[in-house]
Design a protein around this nucleic acid. Structure first.
Lengths: 232, 232
DNA sequence: CGCGAGCTTGACGTTGTTCAACTAGAGTGG
DNA sequence: CCACTCTAGTTGAACAACGTCAAGCTCGCG
């Protein structure tokens, strides 16, 4: 974890600025920029851990991080990957002020730490910003609802197919991609075991639905994969 | 569905007023009261349906309603029961303006319909209210996170135990209760089938963990039930 | 060369769903 | 008053999907 406190460029006014800051005045942006800190995390490092006090909202301005809920034992559910312009920690504001999930870098990741109190201050002073925040939280809330369906109803084939489609469509924006995620990570995204994930990936490969070697994946029959995800 | 439009008592200033309205001025409360409508639903009637446009925020001022996500086929997940002072629909504001779940009355239920536009107006004018709303949404967001754990990791015994504890602790506030929910409803809350729910309830009864006949339940060994819920 | 981490494969057992049948009670109509 | 039908609840049997366990495999690194 490298602290570049003197580098005030930050994601508040860089090209990776989250759209939720669009409603801010120049003064407000400057204020946030003043108090924010850029921090770089290396792959594998934990950005924050579930259960710890929520002191900062974190903006991602480079790299990628996995957002996961820790369960009993070593089990975890990876809910999504955070990419530049994504934000974490907003869902603790005015709630119990704890992190309800952990965030860990899967590659070198640039983050901006903004004190929650500053966020609060601006929410109270700028209603348009507050309204934007409400929209932002509601969107993630609704995303969670659709995840519920994935996680509770689909068979394992469907869940793995879902993970592949998520990676292609929403993370790598390409049907061919090389990922840094391990098989265990992909299992944690699909709520299943490492072994089952491997077996299903192989099955998909045998049926020429996907192709892969090691961490390089290629989706060959996307429509079919989509149907497996939907009806599986 | 009985419309008592002329009855302006409503939940905005009644004893079932949701705490989220605490930050409102007298004028704002009056404004909301002016434009809100009280509507009474009978058991089994749908208050709103998943996918329909979100036009009103709905406050519950009497009775009880089940909040559920509809899945393919007849399947559904009942996420929680809404009771007086609960609110529904807030999580669609400034998002896609659709309902992401359905709400249906399980007994005669009094509701207050407040236009979303009025909600928006006040959010934009009263930052303290906006801040309160953010806290409210975040709390339900976080509740959903803990549900994830229940739904994806526990065995069926654990999930049914969880449902029983939820009903006793959070709905009926009593270890002995008579419910209006059917076995199917209890299964939909536990993400399992009617048959499995019945088998497990019977098993709990045989082990003297609970007792029941028909819709009347009594929790005999709460601590044990809690352990089943936790480690199941 | 040896070690460890991540990946892969096979065998096995359990859990829980599915299907089908049966019961009980409530409502309906001859 | 007795079929009937419909719904909700219950039980049993059979099957299949998945998780668990155990063993090997590959590759990189000291």
């Amino acid at each position: 974890m490298t602290d570049n406190a003197n580098d005030k460029v930050s994601c508040i006014c860089c090209k990776f600025m989250s759209p939720i800051f669009n409603n801010l005045s120049k003064q407000e942006l400057n204020y946030l920029r003043e108090i924010s800190h850029e921090v770089v995390f290396q792959a594998g490092e934990i950005i924050f851990k579930q259960g710890t006090p929520l002191t900062h909202v974190i903006c991602i301005s480079g790299g990628a991080a996995k957002l996961y809920v820790e369960l009993s034992g070593k089990k975890k559910i990876i809910l999504r990957l955070l990419l530049p312009t994504d934000i974490a920690g907003v869902s603790g504001i005015n709630s119990d002020h704890k992190h309800h999930f952990s965030l860990s870098a899967i590659e070198t990741t640039n983050t901006c730490f903004i004190e929650v109190s500053a966020f609060k201050k601006i929410i109270r002073e700028n209603p348009a910003f507050a309204y934007g925040i409400i929209g932002y939280i509601n969107n993630s809330h609704n995303r969670l609802y659709s995840k519920l369906k994935n996680f509770t109803q689909k068979n394992t084939n469907g869940k793995v197919a879902d993970t592949l489609l998520y990676l292609a469509n929403e993370v790598y924006n390409n049907d061919t991609f090389a990922t840094l995620l391990s098989r265990q990570d992909m299992a944690d995204m699909s709520i299943t075991t490492r072994e089952s994930t491997i077996r299903i990936l192989k099955e998909f490969k045998d049926q020429h639905i996907i192709d892969f070697s090691e961490k390089h994946f290629e989706i060959l029959q996307k429509e079919l994969l989509r149907r497996i995800s939907q009806f599986g």
